[in-house]
Nucleic acid binder design. Sequence first.
DNA 1: CTTGCGAATGAACAAATGTTATGACACGTT
DNA 2: AACGTGTCATAACATTTGTTCATTCGCAAG
Lengths: 319, 319
Amino acid sequence: MAQASEELRRDGWPEQTAVRIAWCYYGLGMTQQEIAAKLGINRVRVNRLLAEARRRGIVRISITSKLAENVDLEERLKERFGLAEAEVVLSLTDDETELAEVLGAAACEPLTRHFRDGATIGVGWGVTLKAFAEAMPETPLQDVAVVAMLGSLTRRSSIDAFEAATTLSARLHAECFHLPGPILCDSEASRDTLVRQPMLQDVLERALRADIAVISVGGLDSGTIRRMRFVDEAEFQDVLAAGAIGNFLGHYIDDDAAVIDHPVNRRVIGVKPEDLANIPHRFMISGGPNKVRALAAILRRRLLTGIVTDQQTARALLV
Amino acid sequence: MAQASEELRRDGWPEQTAVRIAWCYYGLGMTQQEIAAKLGINRVRVNRLLAEARRRGIVRISITSKLAENVDLEERLKERFGLAEAEVVLSLTDDETELAEVLGAAACEPLTRHFRDGATIGVGWGVTLKAFAEAMPETPLQDVAVVAMLGSLTRRSSIDAFEAATTLSARLHAECFHLPGPILCDSEASRDTLVRQPMLQDVLERALRADIAVISVGGLDSGTIRRMRFVDEAEFQDVLAAGAIGNFLGHYIDDDAAVIDHPVNRRVIGVKPEDLANIPHRFMISGGPNKVRALAAILRRRLLTGIVTDQQTARALLV
DNA sequence: CTTGCGAATGAACAAATGTTATGACACGTT
DNA sequence: AACGTGTCATAACATTTGTTCATTCGCAAG
């Protein structure tokens, strides 16, 4: 079959063999021992390749049946907030990172339906979106553009829009555009200067013409926001006093999901929440107790067309 | 949560619990022991429910990465036979039944894209189609009609069109229509009488207006055809002599995929191969050495828009 | 040629999983 | 109340899986 010799060419891991093993194991229900014998290799190797295949998302396990309760929550979310799509997953973890991974994985299916040849996809920031991008199966599409809707964090971080956009674009074989600037500038003036740069203008405009936006929201006491600290404590307290309940597309918003009139919000490089309305599909991937308030505000404002969240959050949103 | 008391209402198996277990096991990577402890039940029970969940297709495991060779074969099939879609799966089994299951499972994904609210779906017969229907995940759709394109076998058999249609319609929450008559009548006259029945006419016409047809093909020496024996040996030899190479929608066809001019073909109740052309999407699910010849004929005649087959068959078709 | 390196192997073991037998318990039936 | 009947818990066991470690193999650099 002349594959064995070639299959290492890419990055030194024998995908061909791994796929074959995965197929035998999961598809045909053979035991690892049998597979090892059949392919003439060691069982340990079979075991390792199998684990690696799962880790890399080549083997993917999904649970199709939903709990009646989740279906019910989905319907109520759609009804209540005028959404076209809603996906509620079981929340069986309290770990923020784990929840992000679960939500990210769950978002793949509904979003894949929107990712088609020629589409432009706007991407926000956050651990959840990063997890989503990682969980996305490799789907080769034609002429797709993935556009970051926000600037980067100063230090490259796995949670910024750039990272999520990069990963997602790789999965879709798409072109990736990012906003070459900090998510938050040091002054309004420098933001204005930066935003006037043709390069930036270009990407911003492209983002505004996106067919679908994949976004998230940050609660104020979330680990992420804390860790970032892109505003200093004094300023943070100041925005808080001004009524901030969360961070949406880099902007601090209040209980009406309105961008708070505060200097810090005029230093943001990125798509403004109010500009979202021009994007036909607006998908939120988010969950967790600390995000409920901000989520509720955004939903009430009908800023979204779709949401992926967990059971607990869904319940809280529907109170 | 008040589920535990209700969850047995349907068919005596605790789907709620099973889904929860599956979620913990596959989604969160917990061990069966841990899950048992967490849910306060027995480990044996956890194990059994998990197995049952897999068996029922609630947990489904898919392999996303394809072998380069398969992708290549798909492209060549599309190119060569003017198909819109092609799916080639690894063939690692020689067992006819197993192959049918593998193909059936593989067909779900490409076909789901065609199953939408309001669609009419025509269904043929065979083990493969039956396997496909079984493998189909439960997808609640609106106003979908599943129509059998062929009459039934005299004894209800798990391979006839009726069975496949019934199962599929259940999965899609669709209405099911079947042709109330034998796939093969005892004489041309009785076929004509039967086909003139309004009930039958109705279903036949409905089948002709289908949006998508899901069909298969029988090789002449396939176990299925043998086992069925709806024609007696003499007649079988006769059709064979007339050039029959396979059975397509109940009709014996020759190497040009033309319905052989033979009495037996005038006793069939069902959609005629030539009527297929009116159906916009025509999907073949089939594979195995004994079907290659018939498949090749059908493909050459451009009767299909999509195919799901295995590697070996694909290779044979492309010679 | 030998030395060193990394990768694959085989043996060995602990952990997890799948399977079976047995007994307790609840439930309708007679 | 006695009697099936079926479900579930418990325990025990065989198999499979995941991991570790010392060893061997292949091969390229010295």
